[in-house]
Design a protein around this nucleic acid. Structure first.
Length: 360
DNA sequence: AATTCGTGGAC
DNA sequence: TGTCCAAGAAT
């Protein structure tokens, strides 16, 4: 295993590569909000937000999140509802549930100070191999590899590595490689530079090799093979799921909402009554099911549209309705009648936001 | 090891 | 319009 990496590094000029890469990064890096200071908490938040999420998407969320939770203690002390609302629309909601739990643990066990120990930090919820390396290197200048999709793409080209980056085991090989070439005198800039290069120059499609600061180190470029790398097998096609949902208003104009389970898809977010887990045959059966489940009489039912929403692994087709509801509902924490003003303080999945817009 | 977990932008 | 994706982690 180790011999494998050594062979890859044969004839590779490590110090020259480090210098070319970091010199470029210092000069050309983007002015991003989480690069203004080296607050481990803010670095951490940015890294969690950036997981599988574009920089342009993250920037406004990062500003709002830090404004609302400026310190680790502030986030640790915040209510789940408020924290989830700040994440609304960002996706992969387990990230914020895990971050919130992790921050609480840091507050209790480490006096609110993000641990600089690899063992301690990586044991926190939602902190995997990448986030560990990213936070420790960027915030604490500790020479740990931070291997994300950018790094695998960049290094697969530079070293002509044909391992399938869609496989989980491949990341470990790149971590070994980075451990060998990381700049110990500046691991922060080195790791960020690899990712920045992937984002700006060594892009997935049509990389700008003519602008690349490490072109002379790149084996793929030398062989005109940058377009063939990295090797990445396709995932399987998502499944299609069809069901119905209904926006119910009582005579005062309050809206019936329901909290999703605390695990699984869109965990802990709120939604309108629906038959996602037991799709009905027709609208009459649907109205009957909802009436019985919530103990209300429903009238003036109207269809308000069909909505499609594509997730990573599933596609939803929702037939949406609106109606008036009469009767009482058990007031449990996961079911509520809320005014339209109150509705705005609950976090909803994007597809239910679309349904709400159609209702209004 | 393979699935599950969101969303919106680029082409 | 369909495809691929973007600074991954948990199970």
């Amino acid at each position: 295993m180790k011999e494998n990496v050594q062979q890859i590094l044969d004839h590779f000029h490590i110090e020259q590569f480090q210098h070319d890469l970091i010199h470029w990064f210092v000069k050309e890096q983007r002015d991003l909000p989480w690069r203004k200071e080296k607050d481990p908490y803010k670095i951490w938040v940015s890294e969690v937000m950036l997981q599988q999420t574009r920089v342009d998407t993250v920037i406004p969320y990062f500003y709002k999140f830090i404004e609302k939770f400026p310190t680790l203690d502030a986030l640790a002390e915040a209510e789940e509802k408020e924290v989830l609302k700040a994440w609304e629309g960002l996706g992969y909601y387990s990230r914020i549930r895990n971050l919130h739990a992790a921050v609480k643990e840091v507050k209790e066990k480490y006096d609110g100070c993000v641990p600089a120990s690899k063992e301690q930090f990586s044991s926190l919820k939602g902190v995997g191999p990448y986030t560990t390396g990213a936070v420790l290197s960027i915030a604490y200048d500790i020479p740990e590899p931070a291997v994300d999709g950018n790094v695998m793409r960049v290094l697969s080209r530079i070293f002509y590595i044909t391992d399938d980056i869609a496989k989980g085991s491949t990341r470990k090989k790149f971590e070994q490689l980075v451990s060998c070439i990381i700049a110990h005198d500046n691991p922060s800039d080195f790791n960020q530079a690899l990712m920045e290069l992937g984002a700006l120059i060594c892009t997935p499609k049509s990389p700008s090799c003519f602008l690349c600061p490490v072109q002379r180190h790149c084996r793929a470029f030398a062989e005109g093979a940058e377009g063939k790398l990295p090797v990445k097998t396709k995932g399987k096609a998502p499944k299609h799921v069809s069901f119905r949902a209904i926006v119910l208003a009582d005579k005062k104009g309050s809206i019936l909402i329901e909290k999703r389970p605390n695990s699984g898809l869109l965990a802990n977010l709120w939604q309108f009554p629906n038959d996602e887990h037991a799709p009905t045959a027709d609208d009459q059966a649907f109205i009957k099911e909802i009436s019985e489940r919530y103990g209300v009489v429903i009238r003036s039912v109207q269809q308000i549209g069909t909505f499609q929403h594509v997730f990573s692994h599933v596609v939803w087709h929702i037939e949406a309705y609106k109606g008036e509801a009469i009767g009482l509902t058990v007031d449990v924490p996961t079911r509520k009648w809320v005014t339209i003003e109150e509705l705005a303080s609950y976090a909803f999945p994007v597809v239910y936001q679309k349904i709400w817009q159609a209702y209004e």
